[in-house]
């Protein structure tokens, strides 16, 4: 079993004292050796579709205790996680939670989470690196699919999760345009990204809390199902419906379905709990 997140880099000696690990997101080219075997998850979706909120939600839920059968085992990117959670916290001074947009300079950066199974006799640590690439970058891929071949993070991905924005289902034109782009994006992954054999593509519906009617949920699930159905069987992953941060906690709990997404990140079979 690997030791937790040991740093191997020699300390940088500049100014006073010893320089320590930054705790910021890890650039793709700088993945430390001890995380070379980590599972890499790429969240793919348009701007504001809920990619970063999903990552922040897993961390916020673990802040309250074990979640979805997993316990928190560490993170080399604690500062990056704290920063991504900031606008969903009271300390931000906001009245309505938001999630900080991923900056365009952070293309390819990875968030690290280590979790361990909490089942009796468990305790196996899983190292996960999540890539929250900017929405703009994925929008560009829909226009220029060949660009996926020059994204090394896709060649290293264990799962690519195409995000289906639950907020897009209310208006027919918006919904159909969104569905079209999501399908193109998923197919781009298959045809242009240098995915490894065995890398699966999931469809993750976000913002379940905004969907007040059963028909709206079914519409979102329908978009996600079509994305999966139109993929080659060898790439077809799972459908997960999530509420990473609920605006209506009385109706839909924060964390709904996030446990299933986390199980996929950790390499376990996801069981959708809704």
């Amino acid at each position: 079993m690997k030791a937790p997140e040991a740093m191997t880099a020699a300390p940088r000696r500049r100014g006073r004292g010893v320089a320590l690990d930054s705790a910021l997101a890890i650039p793709f080219g700088d993945i430390p050796e001890e995380l070379s075997g980590a599972r890499v998850i790429v969240l793919a979706g348009p701007v504001d579709s809920g990619k970063t909120t999903l990552v922040a939600s897993v961390y916020e839920l673990l802040q309250d205790g074990p979640f979805g059968g997993y316990g928190f085992a560490g993170s080399r990117t604690l500062m990056a996680l704290e920063e991504r959670c900031h606008e969903g916290r009271v300390a931000s001074g906001l009245e309505v939670p938001k999630t900080r947009r991923t900056a365009s300079t952070e293309v390819g950066d990875l968030i690290h989470l280590s979790v361990s199974t909490t089942s009796p006799g468990g305790g196996t640590r899983r190292q996960i690196l999540v890539n929250d690439v900017t929405g703009e970058r994925f929008a560009a891929l829909v226009e220029h699919p060949a660009g996926a071949s020059s994204m090394p993070v896709l060649a290293r991905a264990d799962r690519v999760q195409v995000v289906v924005d639950g907020a897009a289902v209310f208006d027919r034109a918006t919904r159909d345009r969104f569905a079209y782009k999501a399908e193109v994006l998923a197919r781009t992954m298959v045809d242009h990204a240098q995915l490894r054999p065995g890398t699966l593509i999931d469809a993750v519906v976000t913002k379940l809390d905004l969907m007040t009617k059963r028909s709206e949920v079914e519409t979102a699930e329908g978009i996600a199902k079509r994305i999966l159905d139109r993929l080659p069987e060898t790439r077809r992953g799972q459908l997960v419906v999530t509420c990473a941060r609920s605006a209506t906690p009385g109706r839909t709990a924060t964390g709904t379905g996030v446990d299933a997404a986390l199980a996929l990140w950790a390499g376990d079979v996801a069981v959708q709990s809704r």
Binding site: A3, P4, E5, A6, M7, P11, V18, L20, D21, A23, Q63, F72, G74, S75, R76, L78, M79, E82, E83, H86, E87, A91, S92, G93, L94, E95, V96, K98, R100
Partner: peptide
């Protein structure tokens, strides 16, 4: 409403303590 800037000093106590243990372990 515009958010207050992120201030690491206001991070949860448990985050800072986990970070310190990870740093100690790594060094």
């Amino acid at each position: 409403l515009r958010p207050e800037p992120f201030d690491p000093d206001r991070a949860p106590t448990q985050t800072i303590l986990v970070d310190s243990l990870q740093l100690i372990r790594s060094r």
